[in-house]
Simulated assay, not measured.
Amino acid sequence: MPQVPRQTTPVSETAPAPPEQPPSATLIGSVQRAMRLLECVAGHTYGAPAKQLARETGLALPTAYHLLRTLVHEGYLRRDKGLFFLGDAAVRLSSSSAQQKRRSTMVDALARWRDAIGVPVYYAQYREGEIEVMCVSDTPGNPAVQEWADFRETGHAHAIGQCLLSQLDEEARRDHLDRHPVRAITPYTVRDSASLLRRLDQAGRMAPVTERQEYALGTVCAAIPITVGTTAATMALSLPFHQADRLPSAVRQLQVEIGRLLGSLALSISI
């Protein structure tokens, strides 16, 4: 029995594009209304009742009640004695936003100093017993030092680590070196922990620290100590070894730049 060919509906090669929707058609109204309620609650430090919130946002009272209950359930609001306040989830969002703003402030400052001095600039902290490089600002023409050996494990060898260790008390220094023993990674690296500790004591707690080819051959570095509260931090810079004669003036210029902005950067030290 011969097979009957199946008929198909012809399809044009180019399907017509769907009609363009106005911007408002792509927005979700309930989300917009919920955000208006959140903003309204945020403006009432001592809380506000549902009726007031509905009136101020222009929402029908039943709609406001429904959205408020949902926001309370999700933790973005909390209700206490008939008044609505921002909840833990909203506070976490606010805290995250503030942290991002502080980080952005630090990034902008490092970029400004990088361009003004013409060197890579680094920001690092000693956090929970470890050396952490928080931010680096460099350019293709002035690249940062490549981390070829873990910065956290080789703090004895680079200016950033030595500067942070110099700000710690003796017990904290020894604890760090017990966990990350001194080892030579270039011919110029300090040879043992006793020598390193003597160097740190002689340098002084808040004096700039310099090192020449101790971490990376062909590189010189300097780090400036910054202490805000109990936070040990540092701003650092690096130069190719053939430009080592620029190091003292670059350090002085970075110190001046830090001094100008330290007040506004104090909060950003905790990023």
Rank of each mutant, 00 (worst) to 15 (best):
A236L: 09
E170C: 10
R183V: 00
V41G: 01
E147H: 02
V11L: 15
E214N: 00
L262G: 03
Q99C: 07
L265D: 02
R191K: 14
W113S: 02
T9W: 06
R199V: 00
V145R: 10
A159E: 08
D115L: 13
G155E: 10
M106C: 00
S94T: 12
P143E: 02
G155K: 00
G43M: 02
R252Q: 15
S104F: 06
G58W: 04
L200N: 07
L196C: 04
S238P: 07
R183F: 04
A232E: 06
V31Q: 09
P22F: 13
A184Q: 05
P22W: 13
G204I: 10
V133F: 07
S95L: 14
L38S: 01
I185T: 11
E211A: 06
M35N: 11
L71S: 00
E56G: 07
H158E: 07
T63M: 14
D169M: 03
S166W: 09
F151T: 07
G47R: 01
S104G: 10
P22R: 08
A157S: 13
R252A: 14
P140M: 04
P140N: 04
P140T: 07
V182N: 00
H73G: 00
V121H: 10
S97E: 09
G259R: 08
G259A: 11
T8D: 12
P10Q: 03
E211R: 07
D201R: 15
L267N: 11
P49Y: 04
P22Q: 12
P208Y: 03
E170V: 11
R152H: 08
S95R: 15
T186F: 00
A159W: 06
L164E: 05
P10V: 01
A157F: 10
T186G: 15
E211Q: 10
L254M: 09
L262T: 09
T139R: 06
W148S: 15
G259T: 09
V209K: 08
L67V: 03
R183A: 03
P225W: 05
H158L: 09
T227L: 04
R191Y: 05
E132A: 15
Q99H: 09
A116H: 13
V121C: 13
G229Y: 01
S137A: 05
Y188Q: 13
A17E: 14
P181E: 02
S30I: 01
S195C: 10
A90V: 04
A15P: 13
V119F: 02
P62Y: 12
A194K: 13
C40P: 04
A124P: 08
M134F: 03
R152Y: 04
V133N: 08
P18Q: 10
R152N: 06
E13V: 11
R69Y: 11
L217A: 04
V4R: 15
R36M: 13
H242G: 10
H73V: 02
G161F: 09
P16G: 03
R191Q: 12
Q202C: 11
L197F: 01
A203G: 11
S238V: 00
A48N: 01
L267P: 01
E132C: 15
P181C: 07
Q125K: 14
R112T: 11
H44N: 06
R33W: 05
R36V: 12
S166N: 06
H156T: 03
Y46D: 12
